[in-house]
């Protein structure tokens, strides 16, 4: 399907970034361009720097070299909540839900950025603050319907099984109506059926809302089927960049995955 799809302008451009922790070079000279509406995958062996790259994109890490621009805006040092305000949402490799809160509250938190009323209004509740909360509740219910998690609305997320927790986490990210969604191994540890559901949600999000998706995943079948574009990292360097069928045949990628001569 990749060849037939048309994409908009470049929404995210990463230029030559380098990130190191002490003597460990996590990323060096990585550049990539993500176009609007793409499903973009980052793959690579463990420790290749995939999660570090996502962390740079949404401001959790600050790369020592290089530049990142999102929607044409070059950014200096940026904090995660500023990246969120620009329209980047994210899920985590290890489920990072707010365990003490219900599914509904978790997803509602995803909309906090969109709420305008200050804490004095919220303390009074009646009037504008309540109207705002209810309007956002209606939006959140759409996300809940979309992800088919109506039945667990009021359940504390700590009690949910792993597959559902991953789904709630996706819901929290979607509630922010992001322009770009970063998914860090959304299918890790899932069974076949759960993976199929998750694939369907990812394709639907991309299709219905036009959200650009940047994905890290180890299941090659999923990556090759879903992606429009794939970037391969190994030891913090980019070793391949292109459509899935091209990347699949790249000898360096095969080397990296099969552990041939380095």
């Amino acid at each position: 399907m990749a060849g037939r799809r048309q994409f908009g302008e470049v929404i995210l451009s990463v230029e030559n970034i380098g990130l190191s922790f002490g003597a460990v070079q996590a990323l060096s000279g990585v550049s990539l361009e993500v176009r609007k509406g793409q499903i973009f995958s980052i793959i690579g062996p463990n420790g290749a720097g995939k999660t570090s790259l996502l962390n740079c994109i949404n401001g959790v890490y600050h790369p020592q070299q290089g530049q990142i621009s999102f929607k044409g805006q070059m950014r200096a040092r940026m904090e995660p909540h500023q990246a969120a305000a620009q329209g980047i949402a994210r899920t985590f490799q290890n489920v990072a839900l707010f365990r003490g809160m219900s599914t509904l509250d978790n997803i509602m938190t995803g909309r906090n950025l969109k709420m305008r009323r200050g804490f004095l209004w919220k303390a009074l509740w009646w009037g504008p603050a309540e109207r705002e909360e209810l309007a956002h509740r209606a939006q959140v219910e759409r996300v809940i319907d979309f992800l088919e998690i109506e039945a667990i609305r009021k359940t504390p997320v700590g009690r949910l099984p792993y597959g559902l927790q991953k789904r709630v986490e996706l819901g929290r990210a979607l509630a922010a109506e992001p322009e770009m969604l970063l998914l860090d191994e959304p299918m890790a540890g899932m069974n076949l059926e759960e993976k199929q559901d998750m694939c369907r949600f990812i394709l639907d999000v991309n299709d219905e809302f036009g959200t650009t998706i940047c994905l890290i995943e180890h299941d090659m079948g999923v990556v090759m089927d879903l992606s429009d574009h794939v970037v391969v990292l190994d030891y913090g360097r980019k070793i391949a960049d292109g459509p899935p069928e091209q990347v699949r045949r790249d000898p360096r990628v095969i080397d990296a995955y099969l552990g041939a001569a380095h």
Partner: peptide, 16 residues
Amino acid sequence: MAVRDMDVAAAVIGVP
């Protein structure tokens, strides 16, 4: 509560 339960995730979804 988001800050209490998981501060990194809270920051990432836009809680200052």
